[in-house]
Amino acid sequence: MGLFGRRGVVPFRSAGELDAMAAAGAVVGATLVAVRQASKAGVSTLELDEIAEAVIRDAGAVPSFKGYHGFPGSICSSVNAVVVHGIPSKDIILAEGDLVSIDCGAILDGWHGDSAWTYGVGELSRDDEELSEATRLSLVAGIAAMVEGARLTDISHAIERGTVAARAKFGRHFGIVAGYGGHGIGREMHLEPFLANEGDPGQGPRLVVGSTLAVEPMLTLGTEETTIEDDDWTVVTDDGSRAAHWEHTVAVTEDGPRILTQRPGSA
């Protein structure tokens, strides 16, 4: 593995190591699909967490999140105004029209995969549909910027431009959540460098073949400001507006960006 200390380069992996990360990522993708299928009105987020842990462990993997700095769940289940890091609970019961963001990580053979997906319980409002789609489009824009020779903030800028384009597409404002973003990933879930979701291009370490990052835009229907609740985990929007979170683990290859957290049936 390349080291971040090797000046100016985002950490990189060999082709075989990327395949190992993709195997971990496939477990994450399958878990997200299983959780989404179970996300019905009347189901608790704790039940979703139990499904996720079972899928991960049945695949011979280990949940990345469980026990991470004391986090109790195998997924982060963030509903409506919760941006990220929602703790699964028997007391949080899904209802029709809820906007759900599930963040999931798995370790397989020492390698991490990390991905998040926002979707609705039943039918979403038009506002929430546009919010989730804007976040997905911002993710797509960021992934497209993960090419050999790019600088770290080229990705940040691409995510921001994706959000700006989505604002124009839907004719509305989406807030880019302040202070949160993506990260390096490999044999640990969170590695340097931090990847902001906005900023000027052309700065930071350079991407090389094999560089891996978790790209994860987070948008809201209102404010960019958030507060961490008393549980020291749950991040909520200050104005109560709904939030969406999309994430993939991505590698730079000679043939362009490679998504390492593919979901079953995805293109």
Rank of each mutant, 00 (worst) to 15 (best):
V82L: 11
G149W: 11
E192R: 14
W111V: 15
A24H: 06
L99S: 07
V121F: 04
E247H: 02
E50W: 00
E96Y: 09
G265L: 07
D128P: 03
G5L: 02
M146K: 02
G210C: 01
A178E: 14
I56H: 09
D232A: 13
E192L: 05
E123P: 00
A38K: 13
D91H: 15
V84K: 02
W233A: 04
S241M: 13
L137V: 06
K66A: 11
F4V: 15
R172H: 04
D154W: 13
W233G: 01
T118W: 09
A81S: 14
A24K: 04
A196W: 01
R263T: 08
L213H: 03
D232F: 13
A141E: 02
G25I: 03
S156D: 05
A214P: 00
L108Q: 11
V28H: 10
R242K: 15
G142N: 06
R161D: 03
M1V: 12
L3Q: 11
P257D: 09
R263I: 04
A166L: 02
G5N: 10
A158Q: 09
L46R: 13
G5W: 09
I185E: 09
Q262N: 12
V62W: 05
V27A: 07
A196L: 05
P264W: 03
W111T: 08
T135I: 10
L32C: 04
D109A: 12
P201Q: 10
H190R: 03
I87S: 04
D19L: 08
A22C: 07
V209C: 05
R57Y: 03
